[in-house]
């Protein structure tokens, strides 16, 4: 497997920037912003490496969310109660907003007065919508799995 280090670093850098931006939006303190950036960088690094290995977007996103979730749990002693929120902030840049917009535009185009090639449009819209649902589900499942596994260990 060949990993393009420059591409991974590029993704990690912009994942960190995006996660820090969301950290500011969610009113995290200055001290926690660097952890936001770290979780965003970890998420995008894992996802890029998995996609470079030939994984689908959904599988790579699931792996990245699980990595961030487990990372947050492992650092819980240091980060305190905010560890879960930091993990969520790190995963937000992976939410497929562009695909969601494309899916809704596709639905609008499909219901227009004269849609051009409706069957092709329906297939591409369905494909995009399913991709959004599966990717958002992968983020939720990846983060929740870490939370619930560690929680059950504490309670049992």
């Amino acid at each position: 497997m060949m990993v393009d280090v420059l591409h991974v670093l590029h993704q990690a850098l912009f994942g960190a920037v995006a996660a820090s931006g969301f950290g500011v939006l969610f009113n995290f303190g200055w001290r926690d912003l660097r952890w936001c950036a770290t979780s965003g960088a970890l998420a995008l690094t894992t996802r890029t490496i998995a996609q470079d290995a030939g994984w689908s977007l959904e599988a790579a996103t699931f792996a990245a969310a699980a990595a961030v979730g487990f990372g947050g749990r492992l650092l819980r002693a240091r980060l305190g109660i905010a560890s879960n929120a930091l993990a969520v902030a790190g995963c937000i840049p992976m939410v497929p907003g562009f695909f969601a917009a494309q899916a809704i535009f596709g639905l609008f185009a499909l219901t227009a007065a004269q849609p051009g090639n409706p069957s092709k449009l329906a297939v591409s819209t369905m494909e995009t919508a399913l991709r959004v649902i599966f990717t958002a589900g992968a983020i939720g499942a990846g983060l929740s799995i870490a939370t619930h596994i560690f929680r059950s260990e504490v309670h049992d």
Binding site: G21, F22, L25, F26, V88, C91, I92, V95, G97, F98, A100, A101, Q102, A136, G137, I139, G140, A141, L143, S144, H148
Partner: peptide
């Protein structure tokens, strides 16, 4: 034009919805 509204995409509520169901 789409990239300019990505900040508005409700990522946290989407995760919270799944988390609540779980």
């Amino acid at each position: 034009m789409v990239a300019s509204v990505l900040m508005l995409v409700p990522g946290v509520p989407a995760y919270n919805a799944q988390s609540d169901i779980l």
